[in-house]
């Protein structure tokens, strides 16, 4: 609607360049937690004992030998947690990467090219979007007896990229009709160059937030699949740990050291990524930024003044 009202091409409109998110408390907390967990997943497995080694001591609470206790079959929980962290992060990373590629391809390229390609890509995206993913994943998993971590990640990615593609398509369409992009077109810049130089940089915050979402979704989705006994076979993830804990009646036996750590890791990692996404959101949507407390602190108004101002307006 607004686009139709502006008829003239205004060459002076400044380009909006992505800025780094301001280092707020939220963002810092998110980055630190996510960083520590990633570090644990990277070097943890090098430091711990064999996670699958069975010991006849059975279910034991935390001790000096086993910092997080042992499972029913005497396996070291800390060792399992280290490998599980690595496994879950691999699933998250693979799905994040695949989502980036798939949604970028179907969302950005289609929308930028326009015409029948856009129609076809958007139709495909929307069809994938309305067909519920998890039941399909469950059914596929049921047919395949041996499931590697990569297979699970692949199936999760295939069923989850469409939402991001749709969001990206919307933004690309609106960017495509921005004045400075039209101006570069008039100036005869090459189409792929316009895509890379003018459009892609503006999509980076949105891409980042979509990838973060995909990673959260993948890790939680994998955990859900594992809980149903349909996760990766023969590998450790937070989800499979919880599955074994559930099967070993850890909850009933009060073996908190078995089921709390993987659940907590999941929750912490998910929360950390959500915090990061909040900060990215504030870049994507400047209207939100003006409402944060940070912005208000920048005003030279006392609380009393703000309170009085609120009385007379919304």
């Amino acid at each position: 609607m607004a686009a139709a009202d502006t008829v003239t091409v205004n060459l002076a409109v400044p380009r909006r360049r992505p800025t780094l998110p301001p280092m707020t408390g939220k963002l810092a907390t998110g980055l630190i937690i996510a960083g520590l967990i990633t570090l644990f997943g990277l070097i943890g497995p090098l430091l711990v004992q064999d996670p699958a080694k069975i010991d006849d001591i059975g279910l034991t609470p935390p001790s000096a030998d086993h910092l997080l206790g042992t499972t029913q079959t005497g396996q070291d929980v800390l060792a399992q947690l280290a490998y599980a962290t690595r496994g879950s992060l691999i699933v998250g990373a693979v799905v994040g990467l695949l989502t980036l590629i798939l949604s970028g391809f179907f969302g950005i390229v289609g929308a930028y090219a326009g015409g029948w390609l856009d129609e076809a890509f958007s139709l495909f995206t929307n069809v994938v979007l309305v067909i519920p993913g998890l039941p399909v994943v469950i059914v596929i998993s049921a047919y395949v007896a041996e499931r590697s971590l990569l297979l699970v990640a692949l199936v999760l990615a295939i069923t989850s990229w469409a939402g991001s593609a749709r969001v990206l398509r919307g933004s690309t369409l609106s960017l495509r009709s921005r004045d400075y992009v039209l101006a570069s077109r008039v100036a005869g810049e090459r189409r792929w160059r316009i895509l890379l130089v003018e459009i892609l940089p503006n999509l980076i915050p949105l891409l980042a937030s979509q990838v973060v979402f995909a990673v959260i979704f993948a890790i939680l989705g994998e955990a859900g699949l594992s809980y149903l006994g349909l996760g990766a076979t023969e590998s450790f993830t937070w989800g499979t740990m919880l599955y074994y804990a559930q099967n070993g009646l850890a909850l009933r036996l009060g073996a908190w050291w078995w089921f709390v750590p993987p659940g907590l890791m999941l929750a912490l990692f998910g929360a950390a990524l959500s915090l990061i996404n909040f900060s990215i959101d504030e870049i994507i949507n400047p209207k939100l930024r003006n409402q944060t407390r940070g912005a208000r602190r920048g005003w030279r108004m006392s609380r009393e003044q703000i309170r009085r101002a609120k009385e007379s307006t919304l």
């Binding site: 939680l220 859900g224 989800g239 909850l251 659940g263 999941l266 929750a267 998910g270 929360a271 409402q291």
Partner: peptide, 26 residues
């Protein structure tokens, strides 16, 4: 904006990052 209701949001989004079945089991 900025009322107690607004501060409830981070708490409820925490529930979302917890895996659903874990929350349900507990």
């Amino acid at each position: 904006r900025g009322s107690w209701m607004d501060n409830l949001i981070p708490v409820t989004t925490m529930f979302q990052s917890v895996p659903y079945f874990w929350l349900a089991l507990i």
